[in-house]
């Protein structure tokens, strides 16, 4: 599968041999237009992610040891970043969530295919989230609206300010194109956010 848009890859690996090897494989592949950004540690990685929308992180699991909190917060902040860890064949499997494993003994083609798979999955995810998909919080607010609660009641229930509820409602309307309460109810049922049996007709 051809992938014409450049793919930005962060490479978190201190071994120069491995770094240059991976870069050579990526750059030589006709199938992907890779841009590799090498980083030394998690701090540098954070900086890169802030400034450059990055598709994939390839990392040596060494950097993850005892840094679970930071990795998790990176995942939360950049939900579209896929993480591939390098398997040296000597370390135990990384306990941290990752999306793919690259072995030092994989063929170049195998590595390229694994990365392409990640990118495609990612872009699909982005596409889905661009349209009307609501955040978890917005879904909670919407459920309140559908159940006929006032903004004040929703705010109390979720422990947020009325102002925030109003902001969420605005975003819900922008994303869905539906403004009225009864219209939002039908939307919520179509999207299976609420159960139709719970709604009185």
């Amino acid at each position: 599968m051809q992938n014409r848009t450049p793919i930005h890859i962060a490479l978190l690996e201190t071994s120069r041999i491995i770094c240059e090897g991976i870069q050579a494989i990526l750059y030589q592949s006709p199938e992907l237009d890779a841009r590799v950004h090498r980083v030394e540690d998690l701090e540098e990685l954070g900086e890169l992610l802030e400034n450059q929308s990055t598709d994939i992180l390839i990392a040596s699991p060494v950097h993850f040891v005892n840094r679970e909190k930071e990795i998790n917060s990176i995942r939360k902040e950049f939900p579209t970043l896929s993480i591939a860890v390098i398997d040296y064949g000597v370390m135990r499997q990384s306990p941290l969530p990752h999306d793919a494993t690259l072995s030092l003994y994989d063929t170049p083609d195998h590595i390229v295919q694994s990365l392409l798979k990640l990118v495609n999955k990612n872009r699909l995810f982005c596409k889905m989230h661009q349209d009307d998909n609501l955040t978890k919080r917005e879904i909670e607010v919407l459920t309140g609206v559908v159940n006929g609660l006032l903004n004040k009641e929703i705010a109390e229930q979720l422990n947020i300010s009325v102002h925030t509820v109003v902001r969420h409602r605005k975003n819900i309307t922008t994303k869905t194109g539906i403004r009225s309460q009864s219209g939002l109810t039908i939307y919520a049922i179509s999207k299976k956010i609420v159960n139709i049996e719970d709604i009185e007709i």
Partner: peptide
């Protein structure tokens, strides 16, 4: 009133959501 807005809701429900 919001007569035009409700009409938009109906159109969007039919175009985008209700199967």
């Amino acid at each position: 009133t919001d007569i035009e807005l409700k009409l938009k809701d109906l159109k969007n429900l039919l175009l985008k959501y209700v199967k």
